[in-house]
């Protein structure tokens, strides 16, 4: 479904120095696969997501979605950003419908679907509220509904739960699993939580920083449906341990202990 071949991304910093954000990335994501990208900050995982989304173009290499090269954003992709980025002047319902409005599609028929999505994430009755009246977790739920409104087969999520408190985060992780179970999609999910990655993913992509590159791709053979209780399973522990070891062994920071 999603293919990256020899993708490199070089940015120029303000003092005209070259910064290699991504170096020679090769990655395949199968249809309906849930892939988590884990890595330390600055490893270019968000850049990778933006490349797949077509928001930026790679310096080198090629990206294709469904066999078609990505040159600009596609309408069959939904994106959830780290911040909810809801428009503060529009109601929750209008925010969920916003992608359709921005695409210039009619929204009248999509209203029941938007309401159904909001019901699914527990935001029934909040349709006419403004985003400012919602908690951070509720805002991010609405943002997920917004990404799903045009029923995209591909969902790209850039640390969507990163700004939430630990409890809300766990709750949202389970909700996302449920959404995915109900309606399968290809999901690329960027996170820096190892537990989150192992719990969610079919495949965990471990990245290292400076330059950002893929260290290893691990298959997660923990049975589904998943829940937090599985954290205690040996299989879960083994994968989480491997991911942790990979991330920390590639760190070029001085060790404290």
């Amino acid at each position: 479904m999603i293919e990256l071949r020899g993708v490199s991304q070089v940015f120029r910093s303000r003092d005209r120095e070259k910064v290699v954000a991504l170096h020679d990335i090769a990655l395949d994501v199968a249809e309906n696969e849930f892939v988590c990208i884990v890595g330390p900050s600055g490893c270019g995982k968000s850049t990778l997501l933006r490349l797949v989304a077509g928001l930026i173009e790679p310096t080198r290499g090629g990206i294709s979605v469904g066999g078609v090269p990505v040159t600009r954003p596609r309408e069959d992709v939904g994106i959830v950003f780290q911040k909810p980025t809801l428009l503060p002047w529009a109601s929750v319902l209008d925010n969920v419908l916003m992608p359709l409005k921005l695409m210039g599609r009619p929204t009248a028929q999509a209203r029941p679907r938007a309401q159904e999505l909001l019901r699914m994430v527990g935001l029934e009755g909040f349709e006419s509220r403004l985003p400012g009246e919602l908690s951070g977790g509720m805002q991010q739920r609405a943002a997920i509904c917004r990404a799903l409104i045009h029923d995209p087969p591909i969902l790209l999520m850039d640390e969507p739960f990163g700004a939430l408190d630990a409890l809300t985060r766990e709750e949202m992780t389970l909700e996302l699993l449920e959404i995915w179970q109900r309606r399968r999609k290809t999901i690329v999910f960027v996170t820096h939580s190892i537990t989150e990655a192992v719990l969610l993913a079919d495949k965990v992509v471990v990245m290292s920083a400076r330059p950002g590159r893929i260290v290893q791709v691990l298959d997660v053979d923990v049975p589904r449906p998943r829940a937090f209780e599985q954290e205690a399973l040996p299989a879960f522990q083994r994968i989480a341990g491997t991911v942790r070891a990979l991330i920390f062994s590639n760190r070029r920071l001085p060790r404290d202990a």
């Binding site: 928001l55 954003p73 950003f81 428009l87 921005l102 210039g104």
Partner: peptide, 17 residues
């Protein structure tokens, strides 16, 4: 970025956002 990911025209980006 939200506008661009939805391929909003400049006019819609202006008017909606």
């Amino acid at each position: 970025e939200l506008c661009r990911s939805c391929r909003a025209s400049r006019w819609r980006e202006l008017w909606r956002v």
